[in-house]
Design a protein around this nucleic acid. Structure first.
Lengths: 143, 143
DNA sequence: CTGAATATTTCATGATGTCAAGTAAATCGG
DNA sequence: CCGATTTACTTGACATCATGAAATATTCAG
């Protein structure tokens, strides 16, 4: 099976590149409307689901823990996140979204839902096909 | 047509998020193997096709021209890119990949081709479907 | 209890990004 | 042709994000 140089493959790769670029534009634009950077929006989104230790945030972001300190600092300064002690381990600090933080995260999600409208051009059947192709492409087994 | 909250749409959005993350990981990893950052690799890729004025690089990157100055500075320091005068307009500086720059860009492209192997799991017919769906999703009319 | 491992922070450093100001060159109106 | 405006690029100041090393506090293993 030709995997590298054929026109079709290159075309798909190019399209995926475009999807990636579009995704970031929309994400950063939505974040900027709340005066957040992309990284801050991402972390706030994570914390709106559940409080997390600094260490785990770093794992999710695939970055050094020392980097997370600064990002949480900035979110905390703006009252969107707070640090709490972990009752089970006094070394650990849990970062948790405040009420305002959760509200901001919700608004961000809604704005991104709007940005996701590109999918509106596809029917349910087509989305199903797209979902299955993406899953296989990502090597996830169809459950 | 339900576009926002249905499970199928959210699932596809999630998968696209995963594709975006995967794409960046691979891209940055390939760039790092040549001691390049993602931004540097991206610019080098552009310049390996044709020399460009600083201004146009900024447009392609969707950033301020002053930012491009630094990126080109760093690529130039490493002998991958050079600045040339534009014979048609003495205000303009053309950034052009050197021979070494073109070679590095080629190696980078090859490494990325390898990273693109996820597509190997799909047949030609499936890739065609994927291509068409992505095109429609991106609002490009099928030529 | 002591020593190793873990979680976080701080500091130094570099890349990327913005914005404002400055320089040089082209262009336009008169 | 000439002065005013626009355009292209650079510089400097600053914020964010990222890494890595060192410091501190706490847990855990033996």
């Amino acid at each position: 099976m030709a995997t590298r140089t054929d026109t079709l493959t290159l075309e798909v790769v190019e399209l995926i590149g475009t999807v990636v670029a579009r995704y970031h534009e929309e994400y950063d634009r939505a974040a900027a409307e709340h005066s957040l950077t992309g990284a801050q929006a991402r972390v706030l989104g994570l914390l709106s689901l559940e409080p997390l230790p600094m260490r785990k945030i770093a794992v999710r972001l695939k970055c050094e823990p020392s980097n997370v300190t600064g990002i949480i600092d900035r979110l905390e300064t703006r009252g969107l996140v707070e640090r709490r002690p972990d009752p089970a381990d006094r070394r650990v600090k849990l970062a948790a979204a405040t009420e305002r933080g959760r509200r901001t995260a919700r608004e961000l999600r809604d704005a991104l839902d709007f940005a996701r409208e590109p999918l509106a051009g596809l029917s349910d059947a087509e989305r199903t096909v797209l979902r299955d192709l993406l899953r296989r492409m990502l090597g996830e087994e169809t459950p």
